[in-house]
Design a protein around this nucleic acid. Sequence first.
DNA 1: AGTGAAAGATTATCGGA
DNA 2: TCCGATAATCTTTCACT
Lengths: 152, 152
Amino acid sequence: MEKLDHIDRRILAILQRDASLSLEDLGERIGLSRNAVWRRVRALEESGVIRARVALLDPEKLGLGLTVFMMIRAERHTPDWLEKFTRATRDMPEILGAYRMTGDLDYLIRARVADVKAFDRLYKDLIARVELHDVSSSFVMEETKETTALPV
Amino acid sequence: MEKLDHIDRRILAILQRDASLSLEDLGERIGLSRNAVWRRVRALEESGVIRARVALLDPEKLGLGLTVFMMIRAERHTPDWLEKFTRATRDMPEILGAYRMTGDLDYLIRARVADVKAFDRLYKDLIARVELHDVSSSFVMEETKETTALPV
DNA sequence: AGTGAAAGATTATCGGA
DNA sequence: TCCGATAATCTTTCACT
């Protein structure tokens, strides 16, 4: 947790939506010289508040039209099982998020695939890698929101 | 859905993990001149396969240590309700994802907040904006995976 | 925090495979 | 058509005020 002032927050708000802006433009928007901005951005990168700069791709254009959530109950509750699950999800590129949860739902997986057929392959692949006690999958019909921008 | 060759895919795989690389470096990694790479990247941007370049922030460092999923059943199944829900989730910056689902779970929300107290505020805010029939919330104890990189 | 200049990266144009 | 080279332009970085 860092101490960020109002200007830092404005910089972050802009950069997490569009990091292709030049320092010149960024400075203009927040009313600072490119240099003052440059120093702040640099500090934000060094402190790790800015973790990375990445390109966001369009899933539809890559033929990944279907988002799936899998609600999972574990077969066994052991460190070994958790490690296997973690490794399996890391190794499967269709899986974008994997979460250990509170409540009677043990684990939740968020994945992107081409279609229902591709999901079935993902499902079979997953159960071949880790023993799952109970899995219930839901498909996303509509994404009404999906962002990487955190509240600043 | 676009026709992408092997080299395009390699470029995308790299850029969606690190878009801070220079064209020089990128070209070196895939064995092309910076110029050839530049043309490909540009084409990928123009066709919309690359949707944006953004900065990814560290949620912990921003004091957003808690990820929450809210499973929701709608009060009414009308276009009007859906529109209200959509607007509410769009307007609430803590909500990162909102999905209309198949199955008896109607809607799913993914959000980031500081702590349980902040979640309670988010919850109250949400039910003040849209009528929800049934909400069940689960907290994330551990994120074993979380990526913006799609399989290419 | 801002200015100006050097270093570095990006984009446009052209000739060749 | 796609690649690579060269040159013009724009961006980032840094010393100085």
